[in-house]
Nucleic acid binder design. Sequence first.
DNA 1: GGACACATAATTGTATCCAATCGGTCGTCG
DNA 2: CGACGACCGATTGGATACAATTATGTGTCC
Lengths: 259, 259
Amino acid sequence: MPNSKAIAARPAGTRRKKATAPRGRRAGATAENVFDRVVEAIQSHRLAPGTRLVEEKLGAYFGVSRTIVRQGLAKLAQAGLVELSPNQGARIAWPDAKRTADVFDARRLIEIELVARVATNASPADVAKLRMHLRTEDAARKRGDRVGLVRLTGEFHLKLAAMAGNGILARTLAEYETVTCLAILAHDRTGESACPPDEHASIVDAIEARDPRAAAALMRRHLDHVLAGLDLDAAPRDADPLEAALSPRPAAPRRRRGH
Amino acid sequence: MPNSKAIAARPAGTRRKKATAPRGRRAGATAENVFDRVVEAIQSHRLAPGTRLVEEKLGAYFGVSRTIVRQGLAKLAQAGLVELSPNQGARIAWPDAKRTADVFDARRLIEIELVARVATNASPADVAKLRMHLRTEDAARKRGDRVGLVRLTGEFHLKLAAMAGNGILARTLAEYETVTCLAILAHDRTGESACPPDEHASIVDAIEARDPRAAAALMRRHLDHVLAGLDLDAAPRDADPLEAALSPRPAAPRRRRGH
DNA sequence: GGACACATAATTGTATCCAATCGGTCGTCG
DNA sequence: CGACGACCGATTGGATACAATTATGTGTCC
């Protein structure tokens, strides 16, 4: 029996004390929030594949009602991050070998094309943005911030995709990216299989040199390397049952969207 | 892949009379059901882009509670078929020119590759299945069943994608397909822009001949033709407000699929 | 000791209720 | 006569209550 309430969950005035009181919408306690936090927890290796997600527990952790949790879970399921079986609740998905291979195959197809386009059309500003990102990645690496690094290396691919100008493909790739993250979690053998250090840099070099061929080839090799780092035969291992995996967030980057 | 359960319109009596009545789960009255029926209504041109979808109305039509309707709408929104603005409810999406172009771009990228793979690997059984499908398409065309034809031409692409063996890409393509359908609805100038009659057949020919290059080229041309048939400058026109578009049994005969 | 049957607890699924919000209407005032 | 503002109806957003279902534990019988 976890110490459910223990988490100083909501920083802002949660105050759900009085049922008759402002029972209306609480800003910030939305389904996207649940989604983001679970995604982040996955990326941070705090939530392992296979973990059971009980609605009420999640609600307690996040300080929201089951209604909201449910919406979040639905989104997560749609994104393929969570598996939702009829009367048995949700658990973090465990991408099997086939699915993992398929995702990488799909990414290869899409990203090779996108990076070539970027290499063809990228503005100096774009290149600068990528270089800046690389520096951030390096900083995280130096600092030994593995969690941050995982997130950042993922974002690199997303930024690249966004530069290609096709919103739909970028969105699809974002989905794939998260599943990739999950697959890495489920199948990494070293516990360390983030993207190899310099490959992103080489790709940016090729982009700056306006060499689509090279950029495409590098991207392909890069993805192949990441895939090669996985052990697809790994059997599902038991997951810690939610525990305090989500509760005490260290200084949260917390995206404050809208404005 | 809509598993249309051929919903017999609920006997309008929504029975919210007594709370003690069979308030439990009614098989077949699920969120997927709502999703499928709306998708089908879109494909059947019964629901035009821009149509406002009022939760309670939908619920009445489908004989389900708002809870279920909302789940369905959430899925539709996730799939990009419905736009969900914060306090203003849902309406059928109206893909603008950019979005439409992006979808076609994405489809080109993916389908060219997939069709080439199929042309490389297709078994005789696969080819037979495609030929069979072509016959069904032809039958619908001969019979003047435009609604059925729209659905079938879409399914052709889906079946092809499934044969390529990558489940993820097939799923992504399925999403794109539905959005394509929406775009066609929103921007067609003739009211008749289904896939040109013989192009599917040529593609199958190329597959049977095991000529990936040709298959890819034909697919590209095919998609370009469909896109060319659209008038992307078309301004949003007002949509009939849901009307009896979905309701029990208005004008539309047929439907009643399954058995 | 093991398997089955039943009671019980935990959890999910759905309906319903109430507050919040939006859009429009009407009335008042400048 | 037009503009602004307060009401009102319609509709969405969210929490909760309760039914349904699955999971778990216990006792009995073989």
